[in-house]
Amino acid sequence: MTDVAMVEMRGVAKTFGALQVLRDIDLTVQTSEVVCLIGPSGSGKSTLLRCINFLEPYDAGEVRIEGRLIGYTETSPRRPMPHHALQKMRRAIGMVFQHFNLWPHMTALENVAEALVRVRGFSRTDATGRARAMLARVGLAEKEKSYPARLSGGQQQRVAIARSLAMEPRLMLFDEPTSALDPELVGEVLQVMRDLAAEGMTMIVVTHEMGFAASVADRIAFLDHGRIVASGSPRAVLHESEEPRVRQFLQTYHERNSF
């Protein structure tokens, strides 16, 4: 299995009605790689990420996770994948959302334990044990009884990360995990992500945190109007790219972030 990529996207396209949101996307992510997706608002970053776990069905092309096509059967013509097969593939793919999406009617501990019980078939006791360990890992052991409404944004996002990690994913998707946070809370979430990267987790991260992208990413892909127009090492994309759309984007970014 060593030479099978964790994620392989080939010619992926997606339209919403008349609007083509992704065109001819090719992207390969190897095990333990960290890839950051950057680009202007509306360029299709979230849509691309959501195609990887098939929260958004793509129209054309292929998305393979460890060699397996996600969302469709391998037959020709292809048909939608049976629900249970898709659910099984999703267990291996964690996702962290901009707005956390914790379940408000469950405590932090219950949020983390729920999928272990309902999806992995753990006993309540085993699930609670694992959930406690996961909360401790993101530094929130003492918040296990709190409901999400009682947690800060940074704490909520760390619970959401723990909820994904509890499932032992082999791939983690992050969609602007710090964009909804007050500036002073961004650091604690990025630190958890840095630790995760250092432990060898395969990660695809949509982000506007260029500092994080520059220091953690193995590769950066720049999206514009649904296409990957630049891709390479952080240095190549952030400092050496001749692509005018990348330069324009970075210039706007620097202007907005200097005062």
Binding site: L55, F97, N101, W103, V119
Partner: peptide, 24 residues
């Protein structure tokens, strides 16, 4: 996003209804 978080974790639609949507 409430249902999506559950779907992303591999919940079946029945479980999404019963555990996430109905209680809320």
């Amino acid at each position: 996003g409430q249902a999506e978080a559950a779907q992303a974790l591999g919940f079946s639609s029945a479980t999404v209804w019963r555990r996430i949507l109905l209680p809320q």
